[in-house]
């Protein structure tokens, strides 16, 4: 093989160009980005809940990136406005997700604000949605003969209640629910925020 030097230089050059355009450029663009006005950082409990979210693999079925109206009717589903880059300032690593086996969760805190609803649903999704394919997380809960002081009892329809005793949430479940309740990105995004405008034409819904 002759001319190995020019070949190598060109190959590395293409790689360097791609890295510049796809990695370095966007990184510079979002590095000093201020959070969306009104977006609050996570509390300590929410951060612990976020670790649970990662550990339980929620990201494999749930996305955290509502799309604009020209791509999907996410706003009408109640999933919130299209996400912009500055919504993710406090998310390291982000939990964008690629699968929507379940609904998007980026604004689940405003759509489903009830702690008790979430506890029921995490313990046994089919207690609410008979058709749900979401796994239950019974190991985040425990059965006690009676609730102690400070215990949070999970409210369950009769057919899902244990024969005796009550189901109470472990701290991990409460943390996870606090994180979910805190997911709220409904503050209006600035008009010039970095976002995906796709190939939208003038006058199309967005």
């Amino acid at each position: 093989m002759n001319r190995i030097l020019p070949l190598g230089v060109i190959a590395l050059g293409i790689l360097a160009f791609a890295t510049l355009m796809l990695v370095i450029g966007p990184a510079i663009q979002i590095k000093s980005m201020a959070p969306t006005p009104g977006l609050a950082n996570y509390s300590a409990q929410e951060l612990r809940g976020r670790e649970q979210y990662v550990a339980q693999g929620c990201v494999y079925c749930h996305s955290q990136q509502p799309r604009s109206a020209d791509q999907a009717p996410d706003a009408e589903r109640g999933w919130g406005r299209a996400a912009v880059a500055s919504d993710y300032v406090y998310d390291r690593p982000h939990q964008l997700g690629t699968m929507r086996t379940g609904p998007d969760l980026f604004n689940v805190g405003t759509r489903l604000p009830s702690r008790d609803w979430h506890l029921t649903h995490l313990y046994q999704p089919r207690a609410i949605f008979a058709w749900s394919i979401m796994p239950g997380y019974p190991y985040l809960f425990e059965r006690k003969s009676r609730a102690g002081p400070g215990d949070v009892v999970v409210s369950l329809p009769a057919e899902h209640r244990p024969a005796e005793g009550v189901i109470v949430a472990k701290p991990a479940a409460l943390d996870l629910v606090a994180y979910l309740q805190g997911l709220d990105h409904t503050n209006p995004a600035p008009a010039r925020a970095v976002r995906d405008d796709g190939y939208s034409e003038r006058g199309e819904p967005r």
Binding site: P113, S114, D116, W117, S155
Partner: peptide
């Protein structure tokens, strides 16, 4: 507060 089998109205509706 809700009932034994379900959640408080205010927990979602405010």
């Amino acid at each position: 507060e809700g009932t034994n089998g379900s959640w408080a109205c205010a927990s979602c509706h405010g």
